[in-house]
């Protein structure tokens, strides 16, 4: 779990992302892994894309999501830790301007966010993917 006051930003040098209809698709250019987030996870990602810190996110989460505050904090902290572990976000200088929006307004039920992970493209991280595939195939 990120420490108190830790600023988090998307690792823009290695990660590209696009959000459509509430689903965020994240591509890590170095590892060959891609991911998707929806619901709470996509909202959190939108906040991270503009930069935030862990404390502010947890505070915003308590205001946004209905449910047991301990469960909300645990779920959000777990997601942040996973995003850090996967190299999708890094600790760094927040880019978010003072006073800019946080999570969407209004309260919604908290559903534990899940980072969906896809590794089927990792062959392309090999220098010669075609050669490697052919060798595996026989």
């Amino acid at each position: 779990m990120p420490g108190a006051g830790t600023s988090l930003v998307v690792d823009a040098s290695h990660v590209v992302h696009e959000t459509i209809d509430g689903e965020a698709i994240l591509i890590h250019l170095r590892t060959g892994t891609y991911y998707s987030l929806d619901g709470v996870g996509a909202e959190v990602w939108a906040l991270l894309a503009t930069g935030t810190d862990a404390d502010a996110l947890l505070l915003a989460g308590r205001e946004r999501y209905e449910g047991d505050p301990v469960e909300v904090e645990r779920g959000l902290s777990s997601l942040l830790a996973e995003l850090l572990r996967e190299g999708l976000v890094i600790e760094g200088e927040s880019q978010r301007a003072a006073g800019s929006a946080g999570l969407p307004s209004g309260r919604v039920p908290f559903i534990v966010p899940v980072l969906h992970t896809y590794t089927d493209m990792q062959e392309f991280m090999l220098v010669d993917p075609l050669r490697e595939v052919d060798e595996v195939a026989g």
Binding site: V16, E18, I20, D21, G22, E23, I25, I27, L29, G32, Y34, S36, Y118, M121, F124, M125
Partner: peptide, 14 residues
């Protein structure tokens, strides 16, 4: 659209 992008984008980008 998100499902289509998930099927298309990674193979192009990688």
């Amino acid at each position: 659209p998100a499902e289509a992008l998930r099927a298309w984008a990674p193979t192009t980008v990688f």
